[in-house]
Amino acid sequence: MNVYLTTGTFDYLKKIEAKYPDEMITLVNQSEALLFHETSGPTVFKQPRRYEAIAASGEIKKEGFAVMNNIPVTEEGRPLFEHLIKKQVPLVEKAEGLAALRFLRPLSSNTYIIMTVWKSEAAFNKWQNSNSFFDLKDKGFGDDGQPKIFESSSYVRKYLISE
């Protein structure tokens, strides 16, 4: 499955989404609006960020709270990173309040995205404070003699999804 992301003004992105309501979802936070396009074919975006969903569960609906962990990975570290994350996906899928998960491999950059969609921000916060919270740094990636797999620091973006 292909995933394409683009940014723009909220009103403009909602107009595009209205033309493709079954394939696109608009996400918004205080600083940006993002259009998420999931399809088996090409996109209508002119300059998208392009990804392949290499692990997916659940349906992304037009409601909820999305968290995107953006993780820049070295070229040499990609196979190891993908292997380690795929092993962790089943643990995250069991989280109470999780609606959907996408593990996105970049096709035109070095930054992977682990996208989780929650029924609410409260559900995400509850999971984040639980013992099963999935945190790459706690797993020791790149430490203790392991190969360096990160290009630079990861960062998180949080969004609301609404009709």
Score class of each variant (00 low, 15 high):
residue 1 M to H: 03
residue 3 V to Q: 05
residue 3 V to I: 14
residue 4 Y to K: 00
residue 5 L to P: 02
residue 7 T to W: 02
residue 7 T to D: 11
residue 7 T to Y: 04
residue 8 G to Y: 09
residue 8 G to M: 05
residue 10 F to N: 12
residue 13 L to K: 04
residue 13 L to S: 02
residue 15 K to N: 14
residue 16 I to A: 05
residue 16 I to D: 05
residue 17 E to F: 08
residue 19 K to D: 13
residue 19 K to H: 11
residue 19 K to R: 14
residue 20 Y to I: 09
residue 20 Y to N: 13
residue 21 P to V: 10
residue 21 P to K: 05
residue 21 P to A: 15
residue 23 E to D: 06
residue 23 E to V: 07
residue 23 E to Y: 05
residue 24 M to R: 01
residue 24 M to H: 02
residue 25 I to W: 01
residue 26 T to K: 11
residue 27 L to Y: 03
residue 28 V to R: 02
residue 28 V to F: 00
residue 31 S to A: 11
residue 32 E to V: 07
residue 33 A to M: 02
residue 35 L to T: 02
residue 35 L to E: 01
residue 39 T to L: 10
residue 39 T to Q: 03
residue 43 T to I: 06
residue 45 F to W: 08
residue 45 F to I: 10
residue 46 K to F: 01
residue 47 Q to P: 03
residue 47 Q to F: 09
residue 51 Y to P: 00
residue 56 A to Q: 12
residue 56 A to T: 11
residue 60 I to C: 05
residue 61 K to D: 08
residue 62 K to F: 03
residue 69 N to T: 15
residue 69 N to L: 14
residue 69 N to M: 15
residue 70 N to H: 14
residue 70 N to Q: 11
residue 72 P to L: 10
residue 74 T to Y: 11
residue 75 E to T: 12
residue 75 E to L: 11
residue 75 E to V: 13
residue 75 E to K: 15
residue 75 E to D: 07
residue 76 E to I: 14
residue 78 R to G: 00
residue 80 L to G: 07
residue 81 F to M: 13
residue 81 F to K: 10
residue 82 E to C: 13
residue 86 K to C: 06
residue 87 K to I: 06
residue 90 P to Y: 09
residue 91 L to R: 13
residue 92 V to L: 15
residue 93 E to M: 13
residue 97 G to Y: 05
residue 99 A to C: 03
residue 99 A to R: 04
residue 100 A to H: 06
residue 101 L to E: 05
residue 102 R to C: 07
residue 106 P to W: 13
residue 107 L to C: 08
residue 108 S to N: 13
residue 108 S to P: 02
residue 109 S to I: 12
residue 109 S to N: 13
residue 110 N to K: 09
residue 111 T to F: 04
residue 111 T to C: 10
residue 112 Y to V: 08
residue 113 I to N: 02
residue 113 I to P: 00
residue 117 V to N: 07
residue 121 E to D: 09
residue 122 A to H: 07
residue 123 A to W: 01
residue 123 A to R: 02
residue 124 F to E: 01
residue 127 W to I: 07
residue 127 W to R: 12
residue 127 W to Q: 11
residue 132 S to C: 05
residue 133 F to S: 02
residue 134 F to A: 01
residue 135 D to M: 01
residue 135 D to S: 01
residue 137 K to W: 14
residue 139 K to V: 06
residue 139 K to M: 12
residue 139 K to N: 06
residue 140 G to D: 11
residue 140 G to L: 05
residue 140 G to N: 09
residue 141 F to P: 01
residue 141 F to I: 03
residue 141 F to L: 12
residue 142 G to D: 09
residue 142 G to V: 10
residue 143 D to V: 02
residue 146 Q to N: 15
residue 146 Q to D: 14
residue 150 F to G: 10
residue 150 F to A: 09
residue 151 E to S: 15
residue 152 S to M: 00
residue 154 S to N: 08
residue 155 Y to D: 14
residue 155 Y to F: 13
residue 156 V to M: 14
residue 156 V to P: 03
residue 157 R to V: 08
residue 157 R to P: 10
residue 160 L to M: 11
residue 160 L to A: 08
residue 162 S to P: 02
residue 162 S to N: 07
residue 163 E to T: 03
residue 163 E to S: 04
